[in-house]
């Protein structure tokens, strides 16, 4: 028989054994590569040669000389995309979730319809939207022409190309809808009933119950969306044939990274770029986490002051 102590030790050993796949994976596929990429960022390397060049990749990347680096262009384009598409997809998703949460019939059917775009492969969706945005025969410009508007050239015009990508992203707002709906359905109905008895109108109930109770969900969605949509790649790659055109108007950060690393094989430069990309996301995430104390309401808070 095992004594109590050795049984404990034996179980701990088994526990380590069971988590070991993740630990190995973490070391081999996450931590190791991360450190390697940090190291590579100080070198100039393709797959065969390697030369240490200090901070040169970083100084080159962050220089304002547009002939040497597209960093600022890609940062602007990505930020443009992220900061337009996130408020849009979140508010559209939230609005639909509110409608669906009103105890209406056929809710499962609506859910399926609105969520459908989220399961379609990015490549198929991109080809479809490329066709929809086609300037001469595309459905979108036809729809605009019904209102007497002459549609722009969308992906072929540097002024509208990014906007086309944003519009496409709103099509996928259904994935946010589902998360918000889950959040809304988790709000106890007693809260609303009590507020109604106290004479709170629909707006006050929304402002003082729905908004604070949904804020943790909203926080979660904002964080994951920023990380997710800043990695926009498949649709720009497909729609612009990997060029990020016209005139780099849709050159996004990950597309540029892909080009530098896997078309030009400038692995050192690309590593530096990847690290800057990572640090930018990290800073945004940390700022969001910090700010969350001010606007995210957790039920465990005692006497929550936001009202």
């Amino acid at each position: 028989m095992w004594s109590r102590r050795t049984l404990r030790q034996r179980e701990e050993l088994i526990a380590y054994l069971l988590v070991s796949p993740w630990v190995i994976g973490f070391l081999a596929f996450i931590l190791g590569p991360m450190l390697t990429s940090l190291g590579l960022s100080f070198t100039e390397t393709d797959l065969f040669t390697l030369e240490f060049i200090g901070f040169e990749n970083y100084t080159k990347l962050l220089s304002f000389d547009a002939t040497r680096t597209l960093f600022w262009t890609t940062l602007y384009n990505t930020a443009y995309y992220v900061f337009l598409s996130i408020p849009l997809t979140i508010s559209v998703g939230f609005f639909i979730a509110i409608l669906l949460n009103q105890n209406i019939s056929a809710q499962p059917t609506y859910r399926v319809v609105y969520y459908l775009p989220a399961v379609i492969p990015g490549i198929a969706a991109s080809l479809l939207w490329l066709w929809l945005f086609q300037p001469e025969f595309g459905l979108i410009n036809w729809a605009l022409s019904l209102f007497g508007i002459e549609g722009p050239r969308w992906l072929f015009d540097r002024k509208t190309a990014k906007m086309a990508l944003v519009i496409m992203s709103v099509w996928g707002a259904g994935s946010n809808m589902l998360i918000f709906l889950a959040g809304l359905q988790g709000i106890p109905t007693e809260l609303y009933e009590a507020a109604t008895i106290d004479g709170a109108g629909i707006w006050r109930r929304f402002r003082n119950i729905t908004i604070p109770m949904i804020s943790p969900t909203l926080f979660f969605v904002v964080v994951t969306q920023i990380i997710w949509s800043s990695q926009v790649f498949t649709n720009v790659y497909v729609m612009t044939e990997g060029k990020g055109g016209p005139a780099n108007a849709t050159m996004m950060m990950v597309l540029y990274l892909y080009r530098v690393a896997f078309r030009e094989y400038r692995m050192g430069y690309a590593s530096a770029y990847a690290w800057i990309f990572f640090l930018i996301l990290l800073v945004f995430t940390l700022i969001l986490f910090r700010s969350s104390k001010a606007w995210v309401y957790y039920e465990t808070e005692i006497g929550g002051q936001r009202s």
Binding site: P33, L47, A274, F278
Partner: peptide
């Protein structure tokens, strides 16, 4: 905690060394 924080990690930061490997 480390498991959860890797959820926030963009795959791009590990992409190049993994490709070389």
């Amino acid at each position: 905690f480390i498991v959860l924080s890797t959820m926030m990690l963009p795959q791009q930061v590990t992409m190049i060394p993994l490709f070389i490997l």
